[in-house]
Write a protein that binds this DNA or RNA. Sequence first.
DNA 1: ATTTGTGAACAGTTTCACAGCG
DNA 2: CGCTGTGAAACTGTTCACAAAT
Lengths: 204, 204
Amino acid sequence: MEIPEPTKRRLVLLEHVLSSYSEKNITSQKIQELTGWNSALIRRDFLLLDIKRGASNGYKVDELRVALEKLLQLHANQKKCCIIGLGGMGQSLLYSTEIENSSFKLVAGFDSSVNRTEVLSSRFPLHPTTLLEKVIKEEDIHYAILTVENAEAQPIARRLAQCGIKGIVNYTPCVLTVPKTVKVENISLLTSLENLSAGCSDSL
Amino acid sequence: MEIPEPTKRRLVLLEHVLSSYSEKNITSQKIQELTGWNSALIRRDFLLLDIKRGASNGYKVDELRVALEKLLQLHANQKKCCIIGLGGMGQSLLYSTEIENSSFKLVAGFDSSVNRTEVLSSRFPLHPTTLLEKVIKEEDIHYAILTVENAEAQPIARRLAQCGIKGIVNYTPCVLTVPKTVKVENISLLTSLENLSAGCSDSL
DNA sequence: ATTTGTGAACAGTTTCACAGCG
DNA sequence: CGCTGTGAAACTGTTCACAAAT
């Protein structure tokens, strides 16, 4: 089954909203208040979910969460990730706890400077980038977090695609060209700021 | 003039692509190769741009870049930004050079721990979060980079909205509810990974 | 009474395909 | 002749509005 892109993004975010929602039931109207999304849209999104048809009382939060996790495969299987580029951003992700209670797990880091890979400490091994293909295949890593210099981004993306990576979280402002088998999420600070300001009509 | 959302995002990215493109001319077909976007779509996006109608030779890269920067207001006026939350991610952004040659400028940092704001060194002042409203108004800050703990995200977002912030780059996985006057860009690592994996049909 | 599920209308975006310009 | 600009078609996503369910 194919989940429409905008629906997928909403449901992923909704799962986080529900994880800190303490009531037992929730209505589509209440979700609209919490998120800003039209309630009819939410009900339509839920058509994809495997839940009992209810009414009058809204949805059971527990049941919703189980159905969301199942559809989005959030806790289905452990998904191994690596970080490429251990500059400031890469290092901060190395020590971040953000994905700690998720099904994603960091298992390797890479940097072209052997100095860095040797000096930095981490709960998982750090390798020179020359070993990228070897480690990704041996460890069966599916997702890559790209925090390299701009000039490195596209060459590394190509290598990642070649060894079968499924998705790249791209912290650089570069447009990565990869085969359709590889998904990319662009989350660069600079382009995010530019997207914000290009939207604001009133200059000065 | 209102720029359609998807067009805006493409043009912002395209500007980065062109900034490292060395030829003098470029065709919509070539841009398709570099980005994966359909060439007709690119030509349609360019209808918004203030450029000479040309043909047969493609577009002049210089002229394109000038028109893009004008439309997106990329170098029009200096846009002041602040970071809220000086944990690992906030600190790495404090020292990042990513936005250095852009029209965005970091001018303040905030953290609820006075310890951090006093111990960390930075090229611009760090304040306790109690001074958020005061500093944002005095400095006329328009954009905020949110790197606080999840529980803090919504309360801070409300305060930011109240003091007239135009846009928030949200590094947390929380859905921020703010008035329509405030734009939000969500770039959390966890939700990005979830978006990637929810898209991949083959589990296990 | 309240809230869901959904057909039908609407709105937004992309692609096709080709006339016309340089 | 190659490439742009664009009407028209196709597609995708959202909102409306109301019958059906509890």
